[in-house]
């Protein structure tokens, strides 16, 4: 099986879906030559740097029978388009009684680690999870990137693809040709029996490294990657926590009202799962601050494998 990068897997998904469906087209503030050559300047357009306008344009085109794919670049820039995302895209299908479909894929990079400071190092997916009407994926491997992005493009709803900038160059096995990974199906990356680690995006890899470390101490960690945040595979999380009785969540976003908080609620609100919990759940998240620039500062803010190991030990020590 060929090894390709996370970023290339995204591009491959995009190209294959645009070949497959003539109603797709691509808008971003730049047009890649490779895409323009294959699909023409009509279907691959460079927009002005006006995210509000081209996000709205995607909504209108989607409601008129097209299947737009939008790349905001960094998630940071989506905030410029918040009216179109919050007031329009998330609500338009519902508000009009379901009379039209709005199949739109919004792609954006998330995460820190690039020394680009507060405005360009964000992981705000929980802000979007708070809205009803948007689906969202958060792939952690090249395989999932290609398969999930294809599912996102084929979905008849607005889907945001949060793509970890720390993973862009990471390579992995990706089959050639068509396959999809369904939305709402978690992946158990590693089976274990002592503690469930639900990890997101880059922290899936850090979590697997932490699990290796802990295995040497005789601790068996089950690592779960939800892969999509909406819909969330609650059943997989319930089943794992019922088995291990312990829960740690690792997320590059801050903790406050975050995906991590939602995952804890998914566990604690479920009577059967809550009954099996042996210790309180633990979050290993970024600190609740804007992301700073200087390397020492930035690295202090984000969790890594060591923080995950420490978090898991804390939970095990609690009982």
């Amino acid at each position: 099986m060929p090894k390709i990068s996370y970023a290339q897997a995204g591009t491959d998904a995009l190209i294959e879906e645009m070949q497959r469906d003539p109603t797709t087209f691509h808008l971003a503030t730049s047009a890649q030559d490779e895409l323009v050559k294959e699909f023409g300047a009509d279907r691959v357009r460079a927009t002005p740097i006006a995210e509000g306008a081209f996000t709205g344009i995607a909504i209108g085109a989607a409601g008129s029978g097209y299947r737009p794919i939008i790349n905001w670049g960094m998630i940071t820039f989506s905030f410029v388009a918040m009216d179109q995302i919050v007031n329009q895209a998330a609500k338009i299908h519902y508000m009009f009684g379901g009379q039209a479909k709005f199949p739109i894929t919004f792609r954006a990079s998330v995460g820190g680690g690039r020394r680009v400071a507060a405005q360009h190092s964000q992981s705000p997916y929980s802000m979007f999870m708070n809205l009803a009407g948007l689906k969202m994926i958060l792939p952690s491997t090249p395989y999932d990137m290609k398969g999930l992005l294809k599912s996102a493009i084929r979905d008849d709803n607005p889907v945001i693809s949060f793509e970890s900038n720390r993973l862009m160059g990471v390579e992995g096995d990706v089959p050639e040709g068509d396959y999809t990974v369904p939305l709402g199906v978690a992946d158990i990356k590693r089976e274990g029996s002592d503690v469930t680690l639900v990890a997101l995006a880059w922290l899936v890899h850090e979590g697997l490294a932490a699990a290796d470390t802990l295995e040497k101490e005789g601790v068996s960690v089950e690592v779960i990657d939800p892969r999509s945040l909406v819909p969330m595979d609650e059943a997989a999380i319930h089943a794992s926590v019922q088995k291990t009785g312990r829960l740690v969540i690792a997320d590059e976003a801050g903790p406050t009202a975050g995906a991590s908080a939602e995952i804890i609620t998914v566990v604690t609100e479920d009577r059967e799962t809550f009954a099996k919990l042996k210790t309180p759940p633990k979050r290993v998240c970024a600190l609740h601050v804007p992301i700073p620039y200087s390397p020492g500062l930035e690295d202090h803010v984000f969790p890594d494998r060591d923080n995950i190991v420490a978090g898991i030990r804390e939970v095990l020590d609690a009982g």
């Binding site: 709205g56 344009i57 909504i59 209108g60 085109a61």
Partner: peptide, 9 residues
């Protein structure tokens, strides 16, 4: 912007 997308369509 939305109806401008209809124009694009």
């Amino acid at each position: 912007p939305i109806v401008t997308g209809a124009g694009l369509a």
